[in-house]
Amino acid sequence: MKRNTTSYKVTQYLMFAGPATVLFCAVVIIPLVYGFYLTFTSWDGISASKPFVGAANYAAAFGDGDFWVALGRTLIYSAIAVILVNVMAFFLFFLVPRGIKGQNFFRAGFFIPNLIGGIVLGYIWQFVFNKAITAIGENLNIGFLKNSWLSTPSGAMACMIIVAVWQYAGYMMLIYVAGFMSVSKSLIEAAQIDGCTQSQATWKVIVPLMRASFVQCLFLTITRCFMVYDVNLSLTNGEPYNSSVMAAMHVYRTAFTNRAFGTGQAEALILFIVCAIVGVTQVYVGRKGEVSA
């Protein structure tokens, strides 16, 4: 067999990687390039012609006040949700892996929300916020529980954050647990021999060595919160008065409801760039002080 001829290489490549390459290019590379082209056209989604309009879509996107409000709202939502998700996840991690009775049962329970799709989750929570919590408020006569939180703008935002914490905390906890497992037991033993108490060993030895897990959990939660769509659609659908429309939903509406595909795509690119800047900065800052054993 001649292993250096071009025809051998081409056959080998196509035989093994051909299908993957074709599908990957068809749904990622080509749409990415084509999407960039779309931002310079005005297309309504129906007509065959896509007139070239230069930078008009970017001008429209920058002038679209609702988009910037939605983006700002997404930033606030993400900032609060990311912090609370990780605090809760670390708290769960801290409580669970201590040989407590039934730890697998607890871990399984905390993880369940992550198994279920955002659409179903959002509707279940809508029922909880609209019916169950108001009923608790009525029965126990607690004022702020009596009216559904989903009916006020700030309440709807709080609901979105609560659902995000509930949805991701168990998943992030598992990543913290995996990070903890990879810390070598001998290091913990060495710390204890050197006279560390358990909490000193935790905070001074284990947590610094788990830095990679923190970076990773933050990255995952940041990207997910930034791109939230399913829960947004099912829990609030942008209500009340479009006060809970997140950036991804705004992009969807610009393109598919208002039929401004070029502007929608320009806004999608802006959203992506903002998200990428935040995510990459976080990873860069996080990795800078990483310690390894």
């Binding site: 990957f24 990415l32 084509y34 999407g35 779309l38 297309w43 990207t223 999608a268 690119l269």
Partner: peptide, 21 residues
């Protein structure tokens, strides 16, 4: 390299061109 780089691209950036194509 393309595959690794593409993992950061969110679906929202691709959905409009996909529907269009």
């Amino acid at each position: 390299a393309l595959m690794i780089a593409s993992m950061v691209i969110p679906f929202q950036v691709l959905m409009i061109p996909i529907v269009s194509i």
